[in-house]
Design a protein around this nucleic acid. Structure first.
Lengths: 164, 164
DNA sequence: GATTCACTGGGCAGATCGTCCAGTGTGGCG
DNA sequence: CGCCACACTGGACGATCTGCCCAGTGAATC
């Protein structure tokens, strides 16, 4: 319920930039007491805002240099089953259920074109998948990020002109 | 040798499960010397496989509960310009350039339907954007993950089973 | 046989961690 | 107006971990 305050946002930003920073360093950089940082982090975790610090693994660096997206159209009412089967494919890294033209949006990776072919085939062959449309990711001009939103909170602080 | 060996994979898996683990704990769990873990981590970082430990921020927990995807068709040769303008929109969290029907795949978040409307308008109004097709994410059956691929390496490549 | 390399196991000083605690605003409320 | 709950400060404690060093072992390479 409680809004994120500016200190929370600054803390998250700081951690985004230098995730290895310890609590002590954070407190120094933010200009607050160590206990405060500790309390804020605990609270953020308890609220579910800060999920943890998962290691960032670069798939490209371990051979999976290709990324592709597939939009799947599936049989009515089979979303759960299809999602489960997609989840069983190692190369499927993300699935969203969506409104609009397709029903599922799938992100997958592969080692080579031939490998991608195999993965796509595997996805397409999933039962109840009616129609698919796949695209290969050529580049990623904006990699996954949350920074801008945090920055807004960190500076704006109180005011909240955005509808809820 | 770009290949990841079984120990590397097990280390990454371990860190995926419990990112806060220190080097010492890792060495204990993996059954190797501390120096070994330290060396492996350094090597993984130097190779770019392990990017770091960015904090995982749950946007839904800070009010941005809606996620939407947009496929943009843009004017020939304007990819860079369009991407730059998209990057300037805070709510745009990810952009990929793709082959296929669309040219750009955009992921964005918003606080409410009205807010989403505003964000979409902002994206659509970007110059050189010809046609767009947006979908709202209703759920995420498979959240972003790399685990299955690591597991494959951890078992395939080595003789060791997965640690306790 | 000699060399290189990764791993082991140990030891060191210094930094950090989790956890306490008293003291200081600051706000809400009877 | 006093009282209380709450958050932050600044300091302290011992336990733990870190970064770094080193000698020794085994395997693979030259």
């Amino acid at each position: 319920m409680t809004e994120l305050d500016a200190l929370d946002a600054r803390l998250l930003l700081l951690l985004s930039d230098e995730p290895r920073l310890g609590v002590l360093e954070c407190s120094r950089r933010l200009g607050v007491a160590r206990g405060t940082v500790q309390a804020r982090m605990d609270r953020l975790e308890r609220r579910g805002v800060l999920g943890g610090f998962p290691p960032e693994v670069d798939l490209a660096a371990i051979g999976y240099g290709l990324t592709a997206f597939a939009v799947l159209e599936i049989a009515q009412g089979r979303r759960v089953e299809v999602a489960a089967r997609l989840a069983a494919i190692d190369e499927v890294c993300e699935v969203h259920a969506t409104t609009g033209e397709g029903d599922l949006l799938v992100r997958m990776v592969a080692r080579s074109n031939a490998d991608l072919q195999r993965v796509i085939d595997e996805v397409v062959d999933v039962r109840w998948v009616r129609r698919t449309s796949t695209s290969i990711a050529l580049s990623t001009p904006v990699p996954p990020r949350v920074r801008p939103l945090l920055e807004r909170v960190a500076t704006d602080a109180g005011t909240d002109p955005i509808p809820r």
